[in-house]
């Protein structure tokens, strides 16, 4: 499976398949993180984050890969690790070349900041309860019709399912509001 094929699949509904393939580059990253003082959990976190950033980038149809995926992911991981080390060392400069163009680095930094912001929303959704999460995912992500969802999840009618969906969305919004009022994003 070559890079353009992987990107094609990442953009399709079979994204999961491509993601598994992308793990073939993981051992190198693990080696890298370990050589820079991280453990396998760090490596795992970094690689997952890199994959998420990569997927989001790929989702933008204008995105053109300038190097191989392998090189790109490796670079992103170097960047993410450098970032993490900086935080750990309380802002002290870390001598560690990411081997990325500065424009790429800036772009990554923006994406990373956005990720941080999204984290709270994700947590809220994750804690919404399985049934709420499922209905939201099926509707907004999988783009299933309300009727299909009602059947699948055993709601008596489409109307009840729809009502339930809005209730879940409302709960998520309320939680988000509450969270934001408690600890505003720094």
């Amino acid at each position: 499976m070559d890079d353009s094929k992987i990107i094609e699949i990442l953009r399709s509904r079979k994204r999961d398949k491509a993601l598994v393939r992308l793990y073939k580059y993981y051992p190198n990253v693990k080696k890298l993180i370990r050589s820079k003082g991280g453990d396998h959990e760090d490596a795992q976190d970094i690689y997952q984050e890199a994959l998420i950033l990569f997927c989001k980038k790929v989702a933008d149809t204008k995105f053109v890969l300038s190097s191989s995926i392998d090189t790109y992911l490796y670079g992103v991981c170097r960047f993410l690790w450098k970032n993490k080390m900086k935080k750990k060392n309380q802002g002290k400069l870390v001598e560690f070349d990411t081997e990325l163009k500065s424009t790429d680095e800036e772009e990554l930094q923006r994406a990373l900041d956005k990720e941080k912001k999204m984290k709270m929303t994700e947590e809220i959704l994750d804690n919404l309860g399985d049934r709420c999460w499922e209905i939201l995912r099926l509707f907004y992500h999988d783009a299933l019709k309300m009727k299909e969802i009602a059947e699948k999840m055993g709601f008596k009618s489409e109307k009840i399912a729809k009502n339930q969906k809005y209730k879940c969305l409302e709960r998520a919004k309320l939680n988000l509001k509450e969270q934001l009022s408690q600890k505003p994003i720094v």
């Binding site: 793990y23 994959l51 994700e122 994750d126 907004y140």
Partner: peptide
């Protein structure tokens, strides 16, 4: 935000599942 979060979380879970 919530809608974006849904896509994000699905992606995250996919990545974890791939792992």
């Amino acid at each position: 935000d919530i809608l974006e979060g849904i896509d994000d979380l699905v992606l995250k879970q996919s990545v974890q599942s791939a792992y």
